[in-house]
Structures are given as C-alpha cells and as structure tokens.
C-alpha cells in the first residue's frame, strides 16, 4: 500500500504527524515551512529536522509532490500542464501569463459529475476527487510558480463537489504557516451547490465566481442539470445573505451562446436579478466542443451585451480567450482519452 503524503497536510494534520512520531510540537511548523515556503521536493531536504526524524518521516510518509508529465504551449503563451492523479487518471492545469499578471487555472476533480451541456470536462464523466495535496501540487510543482499572481479554481471538476479538500487546499495557500497568499488572489468558481457555497463563504475569504450563464431557470436547467435542485433564486438568495465587504469579490460567469442567452430579455432579467448586489459579470466566449448544438455569440454581440449591462449599472468584463489552440481555454479541459473507463451502472 502506498504511504500517505506529507504534502497537502494542513498544520493541524502535521501536528498529528508529529504527535504520532513523538516529535516535538514545533516540528509541525518546521515541516510546513519546508513543504509550503521552501517548496522542497524530498523529506531529506528538511535539514533542520534531525536525521532520525527525517528517517522516521520517510519510513511512514512519502513527500507527495508530483511533477507534470506533459506540457503544451499555445501561440498566445498559455501553457497546459498534465499531472497524473493515481493510476490511469490525469488532470490538467492551465497557466495563463498576461502583461501584469499570471494566473493558474487549477482542477479540483478528475472529470466532473455536473454534466453541463457546454463543458468538455463533463463529457468525460467523473473519475475521482483530488486530495488537497493534488490540488496544491498543481501550484507548487508549476515551473512558473514564482511568477504566479492569481489562482482560479476553474479547471476540471466542480470545486464545491469536493469542498473539504478544496477548503484544505485554500488553508494551505492562504495561511501564514503555508504559502501565505492573500485570499484576494484566489477565486473559486462554482455552478451553485448551495449548501457547499454557504460553508465556503463562512470558512474562506477567497473570491467567489458563480457560473450563471442565463437568468432564466427553464433555460438554465437545460444547460446545467444542477438547476433542477439548486435553481437561480436559491443561489442568489444564498449570496445575498452574505456581506462581501469591499475586498471580497462576487462575480458571475456568463458564457455567451448565439441566439440563446444573448438577447435584450436576458440583459433585462440579469439587471432585475442582480439589482442591489455588488458584483460583476464576466462574459466568456463559448469554445465549441464535439457534438454540441451550441454556438458562440460573435464579438460584436458580446460587446453590445456588455454595453447594455453596463447601462443597467452592472460592471461587466469580457474575458479574453486564451489557449484555445491547445484546448486550454474555458470549458475545454479534459483527460477523457487518457483515463481508464470505469464500469458504469447500465
């Protein structure tokens, strides 16, 4: 059986490790520093721990950091990294450098259960949840780690369907004993699993992005099966019950589909729904996936939709498409061809 990983453990969990191995309490902080500040790749490198301690750790644990197994580079500079996750399972992370920032889009699951009509990850079904270690490994094992300014949980999977591991990963990234990142540099995206969203808002200070894609329930449930249990009004009443303050950001993701969700009626209903909510809308060009009946709105339509929303007082941005040529753009991440098909129930 594989040894458990040290990497991905929170300070409390490292304290348990220290206790189990009869190490002094401060050893947990020392380990956290080696793991998350000095970013070492082996237990042997933890040089302020005694040799015996390092031997005991190595007997009981593996380090748990995993290098990427493949890298693809887009003409626009975006890079897509493939990371293994256990046997026959893989995830992708997209590194998106820009003039004034560098963002990493991380995955939280191998595959996804949510089955959104427009998403390539959904087409591979669900294989497994990532551990907190596998989530933060995408960041710590990134060759461009030192250049990173922002992290978005918008890769493969629904973060709030793997909430506990996602919360642990956020704790590692934002704690003083961990990577010490500001939560204002991290955005977690969800399709709106309400109870998990509530727990996230309570326990984390990171930004929240909600995939909305239409303000109409009947339309949304045809695009996103989740809407049959958590319709728009439930999602919005949850976010309305929180004070986002001045620093924490609430945004709504809105993929634009030609002649489907890009009409004046959509602008008006969005304005009505979001009235009084301090938020912004990110308009996203749809990147077609195989067998999809959907088309993207054109640039002109996206600009006019943005202008119409701004007239209504809603801060609106158009997200620039990045990495489409290497299938790293929004909605295109998938490792379907690499994962071993598991037995289905039919």
């Amino acid at each position: 059986m594989e040894k458990p990983s040290l990497f991905g453990k929170t300070l409390d969990e490292l304290k348990q490790v220290a206790s189990k191995l009869d190490l002094p309490k401060y050893a947990a902080k020392q380990m956290a520093e080696w793991l998350y500040k000095k970013n070492v790749v082996s237990i042997e490198e933890m040089s302020n721990l005694s040799k015996k301690t390092r031997e005991d750790l190595a007997t009981n644990f593996q380090m748990g950091k995993v290098a990427h197994s493949k890298e693809q580079v887009s003409v626009d500079g975006t890079k897509k990294y493939l990371f293994p996750s256990g046997q026959n399972k893989f995830i992708e992370a997209a590194y998106i450098p820009d003039e004034d920032r560098a963002t990493l889009c991380v995955s939280s699951q191998v595959g996804c259960k949510m089955g959104c009509l427009f998403c390539m990850t959904g087409k591979q079904g669900f294989q497994s949840n990532l551990s907190a270690g596998e989530i933060v490994n995408q960041i710590f094992s990134l060759p461009e780690k030192e250049k990173l300014t922002n992290i978005v949980y918008m890769g493969m999977g629904e973060p709030f369907d793997n909430l506990q591991e996602v919360l642990k990963s956020l704790e590692i990234l934002t704690s003083e004993w961990g990577a010490g990142m500001s939560p204002r540099r991290i955005t977690v995206s969800t399709i709106g699993i309400v109870p998990a969203m509530e727990e996230f808002l309570e326990k984390s200070e990171c930004h929240l992005a909600v995939s909305l894609h239409t303000p109409f329930d009947e339309e949304r449930r045809k695009l996103m099966p989740i809407n049959t249990v958590y319709p728009i009004n439930k999602v919005l009443s949850e976010v309305r019950s929180w004070d986002f303050g001045k620093q924490r950001r609430l945004s709504f993701e809105y993929i634009m589909f030609k002649d489907l969700n890009d009409t004046t009626a959509h602008v008006n209903e969005l304005a009505r729904l979001l009235n009084g909510l301090r938020c912004r809308i990110n308009l996203i060009r749809f990147h077609p996936i195989p067998d999809t009946p959907l088309l993207s709105s054109d640039s002109e339509k996206m600009e006019s939709f943005k202008a119409a929303l701004e007239v209504k007082g809603i801060t609106t941005t158009i997200r620039r498409s990045r990495g489409e040529d290497i299938y790293a753009a929004c909605g295109l991440l998938s490792t379907k061809e690499l994962v071993k098909k598991e037995e289905s129930d039919y």
Partner: peptide
Amino acid sequence: MANSYSTAKSDLQ
C-alpha cells in the same frame, strides 16, 4: 460575516 438565514438554507433544515 454570516447574515440571516435565507430560504436557500431553510430547504436543507
């Protein structure tokens, strides 16, 4: 940070 409970939460009581 939490405010009053909404209808969203009451569904899951």
